[in-house]
C-alpha cells in the first residue's frame, strides 16, 4: 500500500485521493437514502429513548432547579446531547465489523486509499444524513416540550469548536471499537458494551454534575464526555471561560489520540492479517 502510494507524484496522488474520499462520502450518503426506511425505524428507536429521557427529567425537575439545571436548560442540554449522539451511529461500524468477520477486509488492504480515511469519509457521508434527521427530531421534540433557549452568550465560539469536534471524536471511538473485532470475532457484544459506556459517561442521559466528585473527575478525563456533555454544557452555559476551553482541549486531545490509536490498531491487525491470511 505505501509502496503504491509512494510511486505516485505527491500532488497528483493527493488530488486523486481527495476525489476518491469525496466519492465515498457521496456513496455512503446515497446508500443511507436508499435504505432510509430501515434507517428511519432506527431513528425512531433512538427518538423514543430521547423522549423517555425528556419525560423523566420533566418529572425530576418539576419541583425546581437541581444541580444547577432548571427544566428549560435541561431540555436544551438533552437535545444537544441527542443530536451529538445521533452522529456516527449507523452502519460505519456494522460494515467494518461485517467485512472483518467475513474476511473481506483483506481486499481493503490492497486498495490504493487509506483505510481509516476511507471509513471517515463514509462516516461524513452518513453524518450529513444523521445530522439532518437528528436536527429535525430535536426541533420536533423541542416544540412538543415547550421550546429550547438560545445558546449561552459568550459560549458560542467554544460551542462551535466543540460541535465540530464531536463528529471526528465519535468516529474515533466507533472505529476503534469496530477494529476490536479483529481480536474478538464478535461485534454485537463489543458494540453494546461501547454503547453502554458512551451513553453513561458522555453525559447523554444524566449530566455528569449528578455524579459524585470522584466519578465526575474520571468522566471528565475520559474521551466520552466530549461526545455529548461538553458541547451540551457549552450550549446551556454550564461551562465558561477557562473551564470551557479546557474541556474543548480535552476533547481535541482525545480526537487526535483516538485517531492515532486507530492507526496503531489497524497496523497491528493488518500485520496479523498478512501473516495468517484473511
Amino acid at each position: 500500500m505505501t509502496a503504491l502510494a509512494a510511486g505516485v507524484a505527491p500532488a497528483v496522488g493527493l488530488r486523486r485521493a481527495t476525489r476518491a474520499y469525496r466519492a465515498m462520502s457521496r456513496a455512503a450518503f446515497r446508500s443511507l437514502v436508499a435504505y432510509q426506511t430501515s434507517f428511519l425505524f432506527g431513528l425512531l428507536a433512538t427518538t423514543l429513548a430521547a423522549v423517555a429521557m425528556l419525560y423523566l427529567w420533566r418529572s425530576v425537575l418539576a419541583a425546581g432547579t437541581v444541580r444547577g439545571f432548571d427544566w428549560p436548560a435541561m431540555r436544551a442540554y438533552l437535545l444537544v446531547a441527542f443530536v451529538a449522539g445521533s452522529l456516527v451511529s449507523s452502519y460505519v461500524d456494522y460494515r467494518m465489523a461485517g467485512r472483518i468477520q467475513q474476511g473481506d477486509v483483506a481486499m481493503d488492504l490492497v486498495r490504493p486509499v487509506d483505510y481509516q480515511k476511507s471509513r471517515f469519509a463514509e462516516a461524513l457521508g452518513f453524518g450529513v444524513y444523521e445530522l439532518g434527521t437528528g436536527l429535525v427530531v430535536a426541533a420536533a421534540a423541542a416544540a412538543l416540550f415547550g421550546g429550547v433557549p438560545a445558546p449561552a452568550r459568550g459560549g458560542v465560539v467554544p460551542f462551535a469548536v466543540s460541535a465540530v469536534l464531536v463528529m471526528p471524536l465519535r468516529f474515533g471511538i466507533v472505529y476503534v471499537s469496530a477494529l476490536v473485532v479483529f481480536w474478538t470475532r464478535n461485534y454485537v457484544g463489543v458494540q453494546s458494551a461501547r454503547i453502554a459506556l458512551v451513553t453513561l459517561f458522555s453525559g447523554g442521559l444524566v449530566p455528569l454534575a449528578f455524579f459524585p466528585g470522584w466519578l465526575q473527575g474520571l468522566a471528565a478525563a475520559l474521551p466520552f464526555a466530549g461526545m455529548a456533555s461538553t458541547p451540551a454544557l457549552l450550549y446551556v452555559g454550564g461551562l465558561s471561560g477557562a473551564a470551557a476551553w479546557r474541556a474543548v482541549a480535552v476533547q481535541a486531545a482525545w480526537t487526535a489520540g483516538l485517531w492515532w490509536l486507530g492507526r496503531a490498531m489497524w497496523r497491528g491487525a493488518s500485520r496479523q492479517l498478512t501473516v495468517h491470511g484473511g
Binding site: T184, V188, G189, S192, A193, L197, T199, F211
Partner: peptide, 22 residues
C-alpha cells in the same frame, strides 16, 4: 463478551438511576 456487555448495559442503567436519586 455478551455476558459482560449485558452486565455493563444493565449496570449503566442502574448507575443512571442512582445518580438521579442522589
Amino acid at each position: 463478551i455478551m455476558s459482560v456487555a449485558a452486565l455493563l448495559t444493565q449496570g449503566m442503567g442502574f448507575v443512571f438511576l442512582w445518580a438521579i436519586f442522589r
